[in-house]
Nucleic acid binder design. Sequence first.
DNA 1: CTATTTTGAGTCTTTAAGACTCTATTTTGT
DNA 2: ACAAAATAGAGTCTTAAAGACTCAAAATAG
Lengths: 265, 265
Amino acid sequence: MIGIGFINAARYYVVSETNKSQPMSQQTEQAYLASYNIKDYDTCLTTVDSVLFTVLNGELYTLLVRRANHPYLAYWGLPGGFIDVQRDVDLTACANRHLAEKTGIIPPYLEQVCSTGSKTRDPRGWSTTVTYYALMAHIQCTTDIDSVDDVQWLPVTQALQMELAFDHKQMIEQALERLKQKALYSLVPVYALPETFTLSELQQLHEVILGKSIQSKSFRRRIELANVLEETGELSTQKGKGKRPALYRVKASAADYRFMRNLEY
Amino acid sequence: MIGIGFINAARYYVVSETNKSQPMSQQTEQAYLASYNIKDYDTCLTTVDSVLFTVLNGELYTLLVRRANHPYLAYWGLPGGFIDVQRDVDLTACANRHLAEKTGIIPPYLEQVCSTGSKTRDPRGWSTTVTYYALMAHIQCTTDIDSVDDVQWLPVTQALQMELAFDHKQMIEQALERLKQKALYSLVPVYALPETFTLSELQQLHEVILGKSIQSKSFRRRIELANVLEETGELSTQKGKGKRPALYRVKASAADYRFMRNLEY
DNA sequence: CTATTTTGAGTCTTTAAGACTCTATTTTGT
DNA sequence: ACAAAATAGAGTCTTAAAGACTCAAAATAG
């Protein structure tokens, strides 16, 4: 990222009055577009892959898909694939389509992580993938489309110890890193919980993501300040030892709320 | 982003012992790769574009390039373009190559912002672009490669009022938004300054990016805490009214340093 | 030589997180 | 029925770091 160079002199150019006058080429745009064919050029493969997280029994899970095609045939990898230039209107739609194909639903939270592209990451040639991560409640997750053996939830720790297709392991690591950052200054992880949840469940989820415990007083103070959750008025019906906790649901503004200060790390 | 659905039952699948046993297809991987030709498929255009920022006279500038080809012939747009599948080893190299072609140097800071892809953003067809933003000292910026009229530094505010090629205006806005966030919790903007600089210059830069003034006591306290700048031992030679300010240079660790707490906004 | 400007340090206040305490509520064991 | 244990959730003191304001030192302009 660092690499400093110097040049001798600095010049400063003034913008011309208009940016549309006098086309610099003889060919008209219409003629150019009519004769343009993407297959005349060496292009790169472009795919969209998603890291779908959820939480179950206090553990973070991710969805893996067994590949039915070369390369990496029969390896486990991320849900995703090529852009369907007919059906996908944009990248987000492409990510959601692949996720819906595997889970049956469109997850309530989807965020772009980064793009990774290189000459060597795919044996078929220069390849770029746009990585998203998504969150959804575990109860919402299964599929009646793919056969049982093709799709599975796996604890993230376990997934990261497997040999996955392509560079999907690094992509999971990057998505997890992003989710960790979000857990430090937002309540985004809430989208991995079901419709209604308790504050303790939410705190436990943050703790699992961060890999460390949080002061519950701090956590609850922040939630009150953020004002992005609302009480349902009900208490949890799950039988447990202590006092019955209140149930909350998330307001629409939760996805964008950002605390000014991170939790300690 | 919100859209919740439900399914009746949740199932949980256990991972199989190995992920490589018994290929599911008759064709070998070698045969598949030998017969694979990207041009047999409908692919999408993929480009890499960068928003290059610098600071001059207390104003934020960005580098624009005049397009020599259709579409958007003669419009101003971002430096960037197609991936050269022969020469570019990865996305970062591609971004740096296009920037070096226009400026003569590889900028000292480069960071990926996001990717934008849709059916409609390019009249030639489904197109995806990976947006980076880069920072460099203004004095380092000019070109001996492009003719004078092809490349120019322009105040960002002015660039955002122009009609630019493709969706490059939104890309500049996104890059600027990212830079603003960085200015709130890091010292990344320092890479828009020359090799040595004063703390006041750095503070003024942050103020320009944020569009508001900063308490200089807070700013200096943070810099001391971060420990990512070092005094050169010299004082600024620029003649000015008051006390001569100390010169600083950036340590290598500056790009990754992150404050726990944002400046107020 | 004095007024003015800028750098840069000193210090009080404010905000929000960490750490710890305490109480109410619920289940479990006897 | 009652004691013990566990959990939810509020109260409060401490601590860290930013905001706000003050002030001294160093430089220039007149």
